[in-house]
Structure formats: structure tokens, C-alpha cells
Design a protein around this nucleic acid. Structure first.
Lengths: 238, 238
DNA sequence: ACTTGTTGACTTGTATGGAAGAATGTAAGA
DNA sequence: TCTTACATTCTTCCATACAAGTCAACAAGT
């Protein structure tokens, strides 16, 4: 199989194996290359990548901690389905935290930060037309910049960890999402930070982050078998 | 050593070993029985509990994910020091999320919930006089009840995971903290929820959670070697 | 036809041997 | 005295064998 060979060549045999196989499997799951419900087996994966079971096993443990797989002892290991309550409540946490972050920034009022953010906004407008993955990168960078400027770098790392489940949804929505509108919303947040209006800035961020689940019903409709505990009512409440 | 024997007797040899050794080591770290900076070694721990290195190794991996130990490949494994930015920003996240939770509850206005909370408040007042560990349990239960009533059970599980670092601090403060005052603050939160005043309820919760770091300077002063990146300025800002 | 027991082929869990990197101490040399 | 090379002995990392639980197929009995 060509696929196997290509992946194997990515392997650096002189580096530690576990981090590599971890990164590979995590990416395959988040990008739905290994769709929800897929069965994984330690010896099978080990054989595919020509390594021993040990690094694979350690990887399974880490993925299980993140909720990306579930290990049923003596039975099997499965890629978890996308759990709707987890997705919605991850978003809820993110909104609460980022709203407070921009409120802090509005109170602080750092002109250098505003300049940096405006620079990023211009960049976002450019790549929005071109490449979706590039825009996603820029989007992440924007939010990370806000967190770090507020001195909440550790908090941001924590948010990144609970984002895995939301990322899986993001990679399911195939059609073009309204990148220009997202940039516009980013811009409003920056405006309010510059004005020093903490509560309005927070509201702008909240409105922006509501979008993360905007097309969830449609996505879930197209990939019903990827979801677990799906309930339209939960989305309406949120 | 008597200590060893007692611990060994806790082991159930017919159950899976890894979860047991994980729970044991985690508790020893959080309760500062294994103080920050302690050196851990796979074969040594394995020998202590008369098990093989494999479950110990898997436990190290999990503890490292939670930031309780740090594994330096080919060098050594250490119990991490209590990282001040991590503690402060964990508290920051908790405040943001729980403020939004009580705001939701104030809007919902569920009389049954109010009754349950008042019941718990009475209970808290009782145990506050008696046993500190019991009060801590009741405190946890109060906050969990709020989260679950708002339909944020998954979010609460996330918060629990980042609480380990704050728990380590809690077990360092030996002297009696003002349990009665905490109950009083809980009571204010419930009052505002009952009134249906979302923003005031949120503020009451924020004020309450500020306390979590109230005696941090004193604790850090008494156990300076347990802390990493200690900076009084960080506390003042927060 | 249905139930039950057994066998065998899976799965993950555990134990253990050895490989490779890193730190420490020591001795030889300048 | 100081530096450097090397050997020793740690550590974690990886590979592999075996143990034990689980499930499915199948055969024997009712």
C-alpha cells in the first residue's frame, strides 16, 4: 500500500517513537481519517508502522485521557464518537474564559497590542480568500495572542486541550464557512478593546464564539453516525 | 517499614494494578507526602509495591499529563513543584466558568434547586464546626450541584481535572480557614440566584472564588521550596 | 430447534530483558 | 592544579513473551 509507505517514511527512527505515533494517530482521528467507531488494536497498529506494541499502547493511554479513544480492557479499543454535550460544554468554557480575557485587555489598554492585532486582522483578510487551513491557523493565533497578552498562557494551553473535540467537528464541515464574517467579528472585538469598554468587548467575543456551533445541526445531519447523544434541544438551549 | 506494609495491604491483587498504583501515587503527591522535587524511579516504586515496572511507567505517563510529575527522558522523573502561574490561572478559569453558571441558574429560576441548595447550606454550617475534610467535601458538592443544575456536568469534570494543582496548595494550609465565612458567601450566591439577578449572582460567585488564593502568600512563605516561579506580583495582579 | 459447554482465536494487561542516553566519579595527562 | 577521556551506573525507552479476560463459532446434548 502506498499510503503505508508514505507514512512510514515520515518516521524518524532516531527520535523517540512514542511522540511520533501519538501525533500521527491524534491527527488521523481529529481529521476523521479514523472515523468515530473505528476499531484500533495495539498489535495491528504496531505492525502497520513497524514498531512494537509498547509505544502504541502508551499512545492509546494518552488518547484515552483526551477522550479520543476508549479502551475496553480485554475487549477492544475504539475511536470515540463525537459527544455532543462535550462539544457544547467545551464551547461554553471557552466563551466564559475568553470573555474575561478580552475584558481584562480592555481595562489594560495596551496600544502595542492593538497594533499587533490590527496587523493580524489584515493578514486574516488576505488568507481568508485563499486557503482555509491557513485561515484556521491565523484564527488560532489571534485567540492565542489575546490570551497571552492577558497573561493567561497556561489557561490557553488548557483550552487547547479541550478543543480536540471541537476540532473534530470543524474538520467535518466541508463547505466554505464565512471567513470574512469571522474576520469582521474579530475586528469588532479589537475595536472594543481599543475603546477600553470591557463589558462590550466581552459581549463581542461571546457573540463571536457562538458561531462555533452555528452549523452543528447540519453537520450532524450529514454525519449522524459520527455523533453520540445527539439532541437538537441541547443545541437550542445553548 | 510499617508504612510500606500497610500500603501493600491496600492492594487488591485480583483487580487491575495500574489504576490502583495511579490512585495511590496521585494521592501521595497531592497530599504532599511526596513533596515537590521528590525523585521517582520506575524500578524503585515497582519494588516498593512489589509490582512490575510496567504499571508504574503507565502511571508516570498519566501523572505527567496532569502536570504532577515531569519525566526527563533518560534522566529522571521528578514530582513537579507547585507552579504559581498554573495555580492562579486555574483559579481564573474556574471563576470565569462558575460565574457564567450561576448567571444561567439565576435566569432559569428553579425553586427545587433553591431548596436543595439551602439544605446543603444548613449542612455546611454544621460540619464547618466539626471536621475540615468533611467541609471540603461539602464545598465540592455545592459547586458541583450548581454546575450540574446548569446542565454543565461535562464542564465540571474538566474543571475537576485542573483542580489538582490548587488542591496541592489546599493541603499545605494547615491552620483553620474561615469556614463560616465561606458558608456565608455561598449563601449570598444562593440569595442572588433566587432573586433572579444574574449579574449580581455572578459577582457574588467571583468574590467567593477570589478567596481560593487569599492565603497563598503566607503558604508560599512557609513552604518556599515547594513552589516554582513564585512572584508576589502575579498574586497582586490577580 | 434450542440450549449449553467447550474450544480457540482474538483482545488488553503485566512482567522482564536489554538498548541507548545521560550523569557521576576516577584516573591519566598536560 | 586543571582538563579530558573513559568507565561505571544510573535513568527511561523499546521489544517481546506470557497471562488473563472476552467473544464467537461450533458441536454435543436435550
Amino acid at each position: 500500500m502506498l499510503h503505508r509507505l508514505v507514512i512510514n517514511e515520515e518516521f524518524d527512527r532516531d527520535a523517540a517513537i512514542t511522540p511520533q505515533i501519538y501525533r500521527i494517530l491524534k491527527e488521523r482521528i481529529i481529521k476523521n481519517d479514523l472515523p468515530p467507531g473505528s476499531r484500533l488494536s495495539e498489535p495491528e497498529v504496531a505492525q502497520q508502522y513497524d514498531i512494537s506494541r509498547q509505544p502504541v499502547r502508551e499512545t492509546f493511554i494518552k488518547l484515552a485521557e483526551e477522550g479520543l479513544v476508549i479502551v475496553r480492557p480485554q475487549r477492544k479499543t475504539l475511536v470515540t464518537k463525537i459527544d455532543l454535550p462535550t462539544v457544547l460544554q467545551s464551547r461554553f468554557i471557552r466563551e466564559a474564559v475568553e470573555a474575561d480575557i478580552v475584558a481584562l485587555l480592555a481595562q489594560a489598554g495596551d496600544p502595542a497590542l492593538i497594533r499587533e492585532l490590527r496587523r493580524q486582522l489584515a493578514n486574516q483578510s488576505e488568507v481568508a480568500q485563499v486557503s482555509r487551513p491557513d485561515f484556521i491557523n491565523e484564527d488560532q493565533r489571534f485567540h492565542r495572542t489575546l490570551a497571552e497578552a492577558a497573561g493567561k498562557d497556561v489557561a490557553w494551553k488548557f483550552l487547547e486541550r479541550i478543543n480536540s473535540q471541537m476540532d473534530r467537528v470543524r474538520f467535518l464541515s466541508l463547505r466554505q464557512f464565512p471567513a470574512e464574517q469571522l474576520v469582521e467579528e474579530h475586528s469588532r472585538v479589537v475595536d472594543q478593546i481599543e475603546r477600553g469598554d470591557a463589558s462590550t468587548a466581552a459581549l463581542a467575543m461571546r457573540a463571536h464564539l457562538k458561531r462555533l456551533i452555528g452549523d452543528l445541526p447540519q453537520i450532524a445531519g450529514e454525519h449522524a453516525d459520527f455523533f453520540d447523544r445527539y439532541d437538537q434541544k441541547l443545541i437550542d438551549d445553548a
